[in-house]
Design a protein around this nucleic acid. Structure first.
Lengths: 341, 341
DNA sequence: TCAGGAGAGCGAAACGTTTCATGCTCTCCT
DNA sequence: AGGAGAGCATGAAACGTTTCGCTCTCCTGA
């Protein structure tokens, strides 16, 4: 049976209060400190987290809730959030969603949030599916600090922390790269509409074009979801074949993959037949050498982890903690997927 | 302030014991059931897991401990273990290692095991770094059931459950595929030596050759680690250039990636210059079309998750649970990376 | 010399459950 | 009518911490 503080008390002759105080960083006399240390070592004592949780009302866990775990971006987030959080002594309780359609996932996200709350978390790191943040309402009401990662929710500004990429800048940078190579008829393939990230990226794409004095052709801008994949495919192929499109910009790893597969199936060569640039390469971008905006994934994740720990600590101590918004920049990887036009 | 069982007691006039019993699936009178249900709904009661843990000595968490989270295999494991475990009502506490070298990782694995134990877990799912399972000793002593995933530890047979791939069969199958195409001088590139999975895979490779009546040339079999990467590279290239090797077998996703990068850098074409087969493709194997043994990742992970939950439940109930060994088969994906020799 | 205060230790209560032993109330049978 | 026994309900103790309010000791400075 595991030793308890009572056993330490018995062995040292000190009271529970004193021992608890010392174990939590309080001051005790040198000789008592030695006594306790010795007893702890001999009895192989470790604090019972359940009892501590009951008393202190915090759990020692940071929850992490993400919409899926099927691409290297997410993997990196999980990996480095975990590292950051553990380095500060917190456990990480992970939930990833599995439902197929977006509305189902939104519902699942609400369930999963409740699940994590129920298990007990001191802070929540979330890449939200519900763009309105409805699922975070009760989390915040319960006084649990929330850190958004990769996707911000404007309605919650000032109430939650967030760590995001400068999506506008990243997409502008990529588009500029294509524009500099002389391309003007640039198709863009984004994820589904009505999504914070997507709209920022679209904005960057449009910005870059406007700066060159032209409004991008809206019919070249695709927001691809499960519904319209086939349609997008046809449109895109037709435009490329008719040379109405000389370059393609993909707005995410998943869309890049889709486009790469499409090109391969249709024997469209990069960059001979069409130039390509993308936000985020596939993990082995050095295999494919796609020019891409590389997100500082590790920094992003670490920052989120650290922010979450800091705010959880503040919440526990009852201190005020003001939510932070941190924005990071992607850098440009120049591959061989663009040729001058 | 969150409602407690006492509030329910006050509102319904029933005793704590009755309410607790009902909440845990016990029998109460129909009218009391209704009373309690109503009070729970009105007060928005949820059980305090910390208090429950303190009393029952279990935490509601399954720990998952993996050596890294940097390839799609691991990602799949995490993703589907999480799904399986949550479906049964358990939380998942994730730890992934980050140290560079193998000995450091082994030490980190021991630390991380202690960390998880300290946080409190009812079961542990582990893909072990320490091949001797030394880090699992105190876990088992504490009566916490362990489920190994992907790598078995023979010394622990009968004391832990395990879910693994038939590595021998998978590698034999791949080697056969190369042999059937007429290849005889097949180089093999495995992960570092002294590793359960690696030795099984090597066995499969050797088996297949022996069955054709020849012992594979040991100098064509590479066990690549951080130390000898450069050497392996030179050797392998030399052999290929001198046509002493007509096909390459890679023993893992990571080694496949290494080889693919190497070939690209050196302008070695697949399958024109050399044939290739691999355990596990890269995630987009349909891009690369490498003939590979595809592991049933999802089934593997789900089985591990379910096994862990089942044994945790048994341990909690104080029932005997006998550890299981489950072996799964990989299937062959025929790409275009092999040409007849 | 003595008031005042800092520093350390202590006892007891509290956190919200579960569970054991006991007690009560019916029902049903003889 | 009386008794056995099934089926529920209950009071109280226990799980292992933390923390509040108190006491005691010892030191400082006027």
């Amino acid at each position: 049976m595991a030793a308890t503080i009572k056993d330490i008390s018995r062995q040292t002759g000190l009271s529970l209060a004193t021992i608890s105080k010392y174990l939590n960083g309080g001051n005790v006399l040198e000789k008592n400190r030695a006594l306790i240390d010795q007893a702890v070592a001999e009895l192989d004592y470790t604090v019972n987290e359940a009892a501590r949780s009951l008393k202190t009302k915090h759990s020692g866990y940071i929850g992490m809730l993400i919409p899926s775990l099927t691409n290297s971006f997410m993997m990196s987030m999980v990996n480095h959030v975990q590292a950051a959080v553990r380095a500060e002594g917190w456990g990480m309780s992970l939930c990833c969603l599995h439902s197929g359609s977006a509305p189902q996932r939104q519902e699942e996200e609400r369930e999963a949030t409740r699940f994590l709350m129920q298990k007990g978390i001191d802070g929540l790191i979330n890449m939200p599916m519900n763009e309105d943040g409805i699922h975070l309402k009760e989390v915040l009401e319960a006084g649990i600090p929330v850190t958004l990662i990769d996707k911000n929710i404007v309605e919650l500004a000032g109430r939650v922390s967030a760590v995001v990429i400068d999506n506008v800048g990243a997409c502008r940078m990529l588009t500029d790269e294509l524009l500099n190579a002389g391309h003007r008829r640039i198709a863009a393939v984004f994820d589904e509409r009505n999504n914070y990230t997507v709209s920022r990226r679209h904005e960057g794409y449009r910005d870059a074009c406007l700066q060159r004095g032209f409004e991008p052709d809206p019919s070249l801008c695709f927001f691809m979801d499960h519904q319209n994949a086939g349609e997008v495919r046809e449109q895109l192929l037709a435009r490329i074949r008719q040379h109405e499109v000389t370059a393609v910009l993909t707005g995410s790893e998943s869309r890049l993959r889709y486009v790469l597969r499409l090109f391969r199936e249709e024997n469209i060569r990069i960059p001979e037949d069409v130039s390509l640039a993308s936000i985020d390469g596939v993990p082995d971008f050095d295999l494919a050498e796609i020019t891409s905006a590389v997100q500082p994934k590790e920094e992003l994740a670490r920052a989120a982890g650290e922010l979450a720990c800091a705010s959880a600590r503040a919440a526990i101590r009852g201190e005020e903690y003001l939510p932070q918004l941190r924005t990071m920049n992607a850098w440009l990887f120049r591959g061989r997927s663009i040729r001058p036009c």
